[in-house]
Simulated assay, not measured.
Amino acid sequence: MATKAANKRLTREYAALSANPIEYITAHPSESNILEWHYILTGPPATPYHHGQYWGTLVFPSDYPFAPPAIRMHTPSGRFRPNFHPKSFNPAWEVSTILLGVLSFMTSDEMTTGSVSGTSEQRREFATRTRWWNSTGGGSTKRTLNGQPEVQSSNTRGFGAIKAGDGGKKFREQWPEIDEENWKWMEQTRMDPQTGRSLAPVVQKEEGTASTSSCSPETDALRKRANGSNAGLGAVVEGGQAARDAGRGWFGRHWGKMAIAAIFAYVIAARLLSDANA
């Protein structure tokens, strides 16, 4: 239970944060326990986390602000361990200061307490599935997209083998409006709630029948990779590469060769002009 001083301090900080929202940061205390705060960090542009939705909790000690909170990030990010504490702490820091520090640390390359190593590509792939992970509990939900029969999911570890298992219940309790937005997004992108992978689009073949069809050989190849037997990060990275290749034209795939050819032509032309002026 929070002390009177901690309760007063956290109540004041929530009022200040509500009155002056911080870009890319949303946070609120639990209705049943002011020592438990839930936050969402939105990945800033020009970072591997762009458009990512990173949900976590701050668990404050009863004597806050004289001791630091435990910081947890539930959403897999490729940057943080699930639980960590600030390396140093100042009682003058507020909730907004702490979360700004988490966001700043997240978007830096510094390796210290609470961090994990990972490539930018891996972190981008995690970012594309953060909303799915939050609202399905890492694929452990029984809810399905419109028109699909309800299934009992056996996936209790979720994308990237990160343990989840509550079906998204805790996230939905704390962020009901955002949860509903996430489900609408999954509907629009045709993302399988149990696997986090793309579902084959349904097209009308003849009246009264339906079949699946690919828009192009590249898209078909991407779908086969994404829905193959390997559901880990390697399959996701491979699928992302296929998507990029499918979206490039001939110039995009051969820009390196063209650049070398241009440089070579420039050198030859310079030599010819030099010989002509000699």
Rank of each mutant, 00 (worst) to 15 (best):
residue 267 V to M: 06
residue 239 G to F: 00
residue 151 V to Y: 08
residue 58 L to R: 01
residue 68 P to M: 06
residue 55 W to C: 03
residue 221 A to T: 08
residue 226 A to C: 11
residue 84 F to G: 04
residue 161 A to K: 14
residue 127 A to E: 06
residue 45 P to T: 09
residue 219 T to Q: 14
residue 203 V to P: 02
residue 222 L to P: 01
residue 63 D to E: 15
residue 113 T to Q: 08
residue 61 P to E: 00
residue 85 H to E: 11
residue 206 E to I: 07
residue 233 L to Q: 01
residue 66 F to L: 13
residue 120 S to H: 15
residue 83 N to L: 11
residue 196 G to M: 02
residue 277 N to W: 10
residue 133 W to T: 07
residue 212 T to M: 06
residue 34 I to E: 05
residue 239 G to L: 03
residue 62 S to M: 11
residue 265 A to Q: 04
residue 22 I to C: 08
residue 146 N to K: 15
residue 262 A to E: 01
residue 64 Y to C: 03
residue 69 P to C: 02
residue 241 Q to R: 15
residue 66 F to M: 13
residue 263 I to R: 06
residue 128 T to F: 03
residue 69 P to E: 01
residue 81 R to T: 12
residue 267 V to I: 13
residue 56 G to S: 10
residue 273 L to R: 13
residue 231 A to E: 11
residue 91 P to L: 01
residue 223 R to F: 10
residue 265 A to I: 08
residue 252 G to I: 01
residue 168 G to H: 03
residue 198 S to V: 04
residue 159 F to K: 02
residue 163 K to V: 12
residue 16 A to M: 07
residue 202 V to E: 14
residue 55 W to Q: 05
residue 32 S to C: 00
residue 177 E to Y: 07
residue 36 E to G: 05
residue 228 G to L: 07
residue 105 F to G: 08
residue 135 S to L: 06
residue 72 R to L: 10
residue 117 S to F: 10
residue 149 P to L: 04
residue 32 S to M: 04
residue 237 V to L: 15
residue 277 N to K: 14
residue 139 G to S: 05
residue 65 P to A: 06
residue 91 P to K: 04
residue 277 N to F: 09
residue 219 T to R: 13
residue 118 G to A: 12
residue 113 T to E: 12
residue 45 P to V: 10
residue 124 R to K: 13
residue 261 A to I: 10
residue 265 A to R: 02
residue 51 H to K: 15
residue 218 E to S: 12
residue 51 H to W: 13
residue 50 H to A: 12
residue 19 A to L: 11
residue 193 P to S: 02
residue 227 N to T: 09
residue 125 E to G: 04
residue 246 A to L: 03
residue 94 E to G: 15
residue 99 L to G: 02
residue 155 N to C: 02
residue 34 I to V: 14
residue 92 A to T: 13
residue 255 W to T: 11
residue 142 K to G: 10
residue 237 V to M: 14
residue 268 I to C: 09
residue 58 L to I: 04
residue 38 H to T: 10
residue 103 L to G: 00
residue 254 H to N: 15
residue 13 E to F: 02
